[in-house]
Design a binder for these strands. Structure first.
Lengths: 332, 332
DNA sequence: CTGAAAGCGCTAACAA
DNA sequence: TTGTTAGCGCTTTCAG
């Protein structure tokens, strides 16, 4: 590996000048000298060692991202937005999947901090107690999707889950359904709980009952949705409509409904939550509450790098109800 | 930040001993001494600086992964498998999306090498000429999905795309279809081309024509599949069945078929390729050719770290035809 | 078994 | 405008 001193020798300058040229500063360099250095860099194929650079400058140009599971389209789309923004700013992303394992989150959080990342973004959909224990507070942290976490100096980016769920459910009510079920998330997930509460709120506002028999606490997965809807359809009286806490569950529910020989939306209307790309391509198309995932991802990165790093910001993004075939609205 | 020397002072030992304890070597440490050091580490909350460590030891414990697009479920599932394996081995993953931009691939490749990654995995589905130019050969490289690349000292992991496509198409032939179309990938994608060739081969083997009018070169996306199938259904005579080069396109085609008012599989039978999780949840369920994505991801990491780094290995993984509702086979 | 010290490749303060 | 050099925090060789 060719290193700085070889370039300096070749260009007939000191090591410092090579550095000044590579970094465009902090000292100016005469144009003729700069050209000589750049020529030497080119000829030798010199590339500065990022590790040495990071050690000396105390800046790694990397940020750590922990997501629950990048195989979940919602998180994949969010991660992609985050990556676009970090790439545009010249940062690299260290990525870790929680894969439903709290110890793994902790491990990644520690490792990333040991690697001296310049910032940390954690996307959570489950319990967050461990976070406060593992986060050392040395670099900025932004939490996406979940609530502000107690005792943690972190900004957050989220949507109003309860309100979104309320909107979705209200829409089902407006279709005239009275037995509207809820496929909720795991009980230890804040978004899961909040979306359940929104469903409850909407039903009560409409003067409808929201009994436990209409609720299934399921995993945030295709299978979770499929199994939950089967149980709901097997109960009697069966629901006429269902609000699912995530699109993934809703798509699973679409499948489970077909398995039960029930048609959508006539036999069962369905509304999901998230607005993932796949929801536009189901048959029938999935009605959903769309999160502005691109905006949220980009904003998370902005918050991480904002000048005034001291104060925490808690941003709540707007939700859009998207009615499509599965809720009983005409397609298109 | 507390550092090594403070720990040493606190424990009443030299800096070297702290290092020996933290790394379990390379020199042995008396048990009593080790306990004193560990106690000091604990009390002070010492965490070794990974950057300094990497500079000195010439090992970063990180590997770089470039994928075409992590929002694509196939690549997301592959990336997840790769991450499971790197995590198990104590490595962190730097992840970059190509996002269809060759310059971005190049940028990530350079950046990752500048950061002194211990290995590089590149997942490609497009042209690969730039790779050879950008890869410096200093760390091991494994290429996944695509062909071995000319002039590049890299191992590869892939499936026999042509054979898989042939299998899928042959299966459609066995259902008695004679007008079987092909939704192929972009022309500059090797897997796209090979899958097209497999379709062609199967048709010819069955004594059927494989005219260009039955082929649509589409993007590897939901939309690509939906648009392609609309064109095919609008042509006359319309095909009775279609082989799609990816499940994503096939799922898009499912949607496009519904838009055309044609039912699946009676009006149009469909078989995809990849075996993504989502394929099990479409209505009807998507028949496909499954790639062993978990195995492939893990194997890519194994190849990266294999002892005998010198020789290249080109592994071809087995494919499984999975018949489900969309090809006309009974569900389950 | 433990300590002293060199040096990984670079940035930037200080000197010229 | 350019050169000299300390030192980022650690691993590991060499002495003891």
């Amino acid at each position: 590996m060719v290193k700085r001193d070889e370039v300096a020798r070749r260009a007939g300058v000191s090591a410092a000048v090579v550095s000044y040229v590579m970094n465009n500063g902090p000292r100016p360099v005469a144009d003729a000298t700069r050209q000589r250095v750049l020529a030497a860099v080119e000829e030798l194929g010199y590339r500065p060692n990022g590790v040495a650079r990071a050690l000396r400058s105390r800046r790694t140009w990397s940020i750590g991202l922990v997501v629950p599971d990048n195989s979940n389209p919602f998180f994949a789309q969010l991660a992609h937005a985050i990556e676009d923004e970090t790439f545009a700013r010249g940062y690299s992303l260290l990525v870790g999947n929680a894969s439903g394992d709290a110890a793994r989150v902790e491990s990644y959080l520690r490792t990333f901090q040991d690697r001296q990342v310049d910032g940390l973004i954690v996307v959570t959909n489950g319990p967050t107690e461990d976070l406060a224990r593992t986060y050392e507070g040395r670099v900025p942290l932004v939490i996406v999707v979940d609530q502000p976490v107690r005792g943690l100096a972190a900004s957050t980016v989220k949507v109003d889950n309860k309100e979104g769920a309320r909107l979705a459910t209200e829409h089902l009510v407006s279709h005239g359904f009275t037995r509207i079920a809820c496929i909720a998330g795991p009980r230890d997930s804040a978004p899961g709980r909040e979306r359940y509460e929104g469903w409850q709120t909407a039903l009560r506002a409409a003067g409808l009952a929201a009994p436990d028999s209409l609720v299934r606490w399921a995993e945030f997965s295709l299978r979770g949705g499929a199994e939950a809807v089967r149980e709901l359809l097997d109960s009697s009286p069966a629901p006429e409509a269902v609000f699912a806490a995530t699109d993934l569950q809703a798509i699973g529910a679409l499948r489970g409904t077909a398995d039960a020989g029930v048609s959508v939306p006539d036999g069962l209307a369905i509304v999901g939550f998230d607005g993932i790309a796949e929801a536009e391509y189901t048959v029938p198309r999935l009605a959903t509450v769309r999160q502005p995932v691109g905006l949220m991802g980009r904003r998370a990165v902005e918050l991480l790098f904002r000048e005034n790093g001291g104060d925490q910001v808690h941003e709540v993004f707007p939700l859009t109800l998207v009615s499509r075939g599965t809720c009983g609205c005409p397609e298109r």
